[in-house]
Amino acid sequence: MSNENMTIHLKVWKQKNTGSKGHLEDYTVNNVSPDMSFLEMFDVLNEELIHENKEPIAFDHDCREGICGMCSMYINGRPHGPLEGVTTCQLHMRSFKDGDTIVVEPWRAAAFPVIKDLVVDRTAFDRIIASGGYVSINTGNAQDANNLPIGKERADLAFAAAACIGCGACVAACKNASAMLFVSAKVSQLALLPQGEPERQSRALSMVAQMDAEGFGSCTNTGACSAECPKEISLDNIARLNREFLGASLSKPE
């Protein structure tokens, strides 16, 4: 690891709008501090482009602390770049070397059309959530603590599934652009808890139906999604989704 500032060459996907054809464009960023985050390097580059009266690169970002799921860059062939368990905003330039060429592309999926440059439309995920990824119970006042006993193991599994930030890296990593890891995490976090029980079957059926309607692919169980997931969502959830869906298909009262 060096403390010297670096020169980084970028090949970034530029695309005017959804309908147009994009291409990779070359940029060079000088004086990149190793302590910059990947997005801060893009900020510096965009400042320079604006000063030069050129069009800045459009990219998604929001919280910049790894919890919002907005940043979505496919960096050197991997969603969120070379590190395990982090989002693009948590990736720092110290993970690269002076003189490196970095290829940055948007998530690629029919269900995630490119809006501009590196920004893709992920409202397909919102529609999947709207189809059943919620609990429609009138919660009333806050309940007393420990009113609903939930075993520690179950609570832990639900929590691990709920860590999904819906960034779409699973779709980006999957050779089939499948959304199974995302949907399985969202189904699991509710299926594991008593609050999710009443709508458990209809939820699994509707969310899978919506996932298919959005044009995501099937699951080949390659495991690429989980390997690239910044929240390290387990493939156990996909098996659970398969069980939930098949169980609901076979037993849901009509």
Binding site: Y74, N76, G77, R78, E105, A109, A110, K175, A177, A224
Partner: peptide, 23 residues
């Protein structure tokens, strides 16, 4: 064939984290 349709535009660079035979 259906899975291929789910990604009409491919990546320029991919560094797969899955086994080649599973893909």
């Amino acid at each position: 064939y259906k899975n291929k349709q789910a990604r009409p535009v491919g990546y320029a660079v991919t560094k797969n984290q899955s086994s080649p035979y599973s893909r």
